[in-house]
Design a protein around this nucleic acid. Structure first.
Lengths: 233, 233
DNA sequence: TGACCCGGGTGTGTTCCGGACACTATGCCG
DNA sequence: CGGCATAGTGTCCGGAACACACCCGGGTCA
């Protein structure tokens, strides 16, 4: 909490921020968390959660702190995405932002809004309002990354509840990859990896035959990974 | 060239730099460009080329400018790698660096050294001296990225002379991926993509049967890429 | 209460692709 | 003119991808 002090340097420095693209999965739709800006510039516009990096914290810590402060979110999966630094991307002057990308289980964050003064909401990634700054670019980059990464690393599970059906899992991949997958082959492949624990439970409250529930076995994955195993599709 | 002026801000700001990992391919070995530091901290140590970002230039421009200034290099392929910002990574204070990764044809930069006052040299990536700052981490990250990327995008060609033999190309992949490939399968695959132009020339000055030369067809690749084609292995 | 509707879950045949594998061709050199 | 070093080439096999067809289980509703 610096008071009316100031900081002086021999050469000019850009301001440094972090911005987070947080994805969640609502049945059938991929969502992104946006926050409505309360102050200029772009007051009233929707934007990615983010803010200034403090001098004593790492970039990852800054991203986690901002997410917690602005939306009460503590994601399991958080990774650096890309750094955006075009002069002119912020009307206040030179601001460079390190973008992060996070995956959360929507079920954990349903009553999300208004964790602090601002309002926050989930939007379909295919249908967002006009975003502040260059945040549309950031979102596009994040989508690309997600699409590329989901096939080679088991990060999709971070978007699902702990117990899920194979159909839910398949839909997740179909939504992210934007193409349909063959049910038979999808099941064969994913089960062959032996990373899913088959539970003695079925889904509830459905008006048709209930599907079996599975759980992702993180421990087993860590083991296999060390042994040189590569997750794929 | 600011004179004795100074710049004052209400909140403290990290300094922002770029650092570049430049790869080149010497017959049989993957090389990285290093520069010997002339000033503290780490005076005398080898480090990645880089420097401070200016207020009016983009991050990419900063990377290109530093490469040109410090080593006279203008790479064809340059992409952002990762941003390193751990507090304490620079003994002078908080310095955040945006790392870039570049590929050049070594043949274009053989008489590299001493383009300005400092000395620059190519080192085998498997056998570098102790590096300044956290540059060993940066190099490691760059190697991982190169390894991952070379299989899905035809960037390897940036490391070879314009005309090359299939054996050279195969060696390139073997060096980067750190494993041997089958000659027949490799040729079958790469030729099946129809991205190589077969020339009516053979290599010169070899004491055995001369191999045919090929050229990578950038135009054709752009076309196929738009049509949804995916380069792989 | 039983027919039907809706997705869940499995089997099978065909095709396609990637990996394993070894010999002949060519040109320089001594 | 024989040896050597690298260039260049085709086939076979097994597993994965794909397409199609079928039964299952439970809820709904007439």
């Amino acid at each position: 909490m610096p008071g009316p002090v100031s900081y002086t340097y021999e050469y000019p420095r850009p301001a440094l921020t972090v911005d987070c693209v947080v994805f969640g999965l609502d049945d059938e739709d991929l969502k992104v968390l946006l926050i409505r800006r309360g102050v200029e510039p772009f007051a009233g516009r929707w934007a990615l959660p983010g803010g200034f990096v403090r001098m004593e914290e790492s970039l990852d810590d800054a991203a986690r702190r901002e997410l917690d402060e602005e939306a009460g979110i503590r994601p399991n999966h958080l990774e650096q995405l890309y750094t955006f630094g075009a002069p002119g991307r912020d009307p206040r002057g030179r601001v460079v932002t390190v973008a992060y990308f996070a995956l959360v289980k929507l079920s954990d964050h349903v009553p999300h809004a208004a964790t602090d003064a601002r309002d926050a909401a989930w939007f379909s990634v295919w249908d967002t309002p006009k975003l502040a700054f260059d945040h549309a670019d950031v979102l596009g980059t994040a989508l690309q990354r997600l699409k590329g990464k989901v096939r080679y690393q088991p990060i999709g599970f971070e978007l699902l509840p702990p117990k899920f059906t194979l159909t839910q899992l398949q839909r997740l991949y179909e939504v992210i990859l934007e193409r349909e997958l063959d049910k038979r082959n999808f099941r064969k492949k994913i089960l062959a990896m032996d990373l899913l624990e088959e539970l003695d439970e079925v889904e509830q409250d459905v008006s048709h035959r209930a599907a079996r529930l599975y759980r992702f076995d993180h421990k087993k994955y860590k083991q296999l990974e060390k042994a040189g195993f590569n997750f794929e599709l």
